[in-house]
Design a binder for these strands. Structure first.
Lengths: 220, 220
DNA sequence: ACCTGAACACCGTTCAAGT
DNA sequence: ACCTGAACACCGTTCAAGT
């Protein structure tokens, strides 16, 4: 969104949106979403809570900015000269891992469309689809499916991570779900949860990407 | 999750979880997420705010229950004797329309995995995949891609709907985005947003489902 | 221009007290 | 067993006052 960063005066000690966002990310990572309050943030920055509002409009903007910062790092890390198919997988895995490491990003991304973070992901994937030779008329649908899938699944996992005590192993979790689900009511879920106790989230995520890429390939 | 409904005593005038959930849905639909407070809910039900806690553990459970109620209706409406492919599209569109009509459901579904609503969607789609003859080892991945896509995209649209003034036409919205995005920074997004001013959300959503189904078909 | 921090309005949740 | 509603702890946001 024409965000030309102005490289100007910033005293080492002064507040700035960047410093605020970094502090917010620190708090989110170390203490979780519920710990991010303007009071805690102000204490962390050794300032008054009102000072933050000089640099950030409100909490919504603050959260969007933190998610954008995390995703921006992913996208710059990921740019390489890999061939398109690999590049798409790299972007997907990068976003997946970022959300896995920062579950609050998952929630934020699914609650604000068209924020910079999503534009960046969309742009990155779209460019690779063009390089892959996907016909123009199918490019939007294809990119949209990939992005929605990434956000949707990563969001689910992130929500799971936020719900569970941090030490819980995913296999324990699935086993618990399998045990609680009524086989008569949810036969498919029950069957699948049982057989999947030892699956790897990341591999399964990538299998989904490949499935979608196979679908895209059928469009000629 | 073994939710065998007990068909027991309930006085016409007494509170009940169902009555509370219905009232909550009323408020969410008519006044939006921010209007759903325990105070407003209590007023709506002509009771004290504390009374609600006798039937519902907390706000989280209340929101989950409302989303589950909405999705449960979708899933019962959708069961038919259609052939699997059509049934999957019907489930997907049903969920999509429900989230479109009740944007708050989108937020709720993407924030709580393994809640009943998602189990129901997963189960519905999974059953149809079996009927479609998808090999057992690909069933989980396939269902997972479809469900994640539905939740992901519907969530994005819902978030958009919540952000925008209700009268805004989607085409105006896309035009606005297209105008604001820097073509140099986001060439793909810019190109695609421009050419898509008049697209139909629902059609595009279904195109995505078909793309995924085409991918699933390649697994043999 | 930027920061301080008390004050405001509001919220989820609890709980002693009622019936 | 279920309901009432005041009280508690806490939050985002504002704003007069400072530098």
């Amino acid at each position: 969104m024409t965000a030309r960063a102005k490289r100007a005066e910033r005293r080492a000690d002064g507040l700035s949106k960047e410093r605020i966002v970094e502090a917010a990310i620190d708090i989110l990572n170390s203490e979780g979403e519920s710990a991010l309050t303007f009071r805690a943030l102000a204490a962390h920055l050794a300032t008054g809570s009102g000072a933050i509002y000089w640099h950030v409009a409100n909490k919504n903007e603050l959260l969007a900015a933190t998610a954008n910062a995390v995703i921006a790092r992913v996208m710059t890390d990921v740019v390489g000269d890999a061939e398109p198919r690999e590049a798409i997988r790299a972007i997907a895995v990068g976003v997946f891992d970022a959300i896995d490491a920062h579950p609050w990003v998952g929630a934020q991304l699914s609650s604000e469309p068209w924020q910079t973070a999503i534009l960046q992901i969309f742009e990155g994937i779209g460019g690779q689809l063009q390089a892959l030779g996907v016909p123009e008329r199918a490019q939007f649908d294809s990119a949209s499916v990939l992005v929605s899938y990434v956000l949707g699944l990563a969001g689910q996992y992130a929500a799971g991570a936020r719900l569970l005590p941090p030490e819980t192993e995913r296999s324990d979790f699935l086993a618990t779900v399998a045990a609680q689900v009524d086989p008569a009511e949810y036969p498919f879920v029950h069957q699948v949860a049982t057989q999947l106790r030892e699956h790897d989230d990341r591999e399964q995520f990538l299998a989904g990407i490949d499935l979608i890429l196979a679908g895209i390939k059928t469009v000629r």
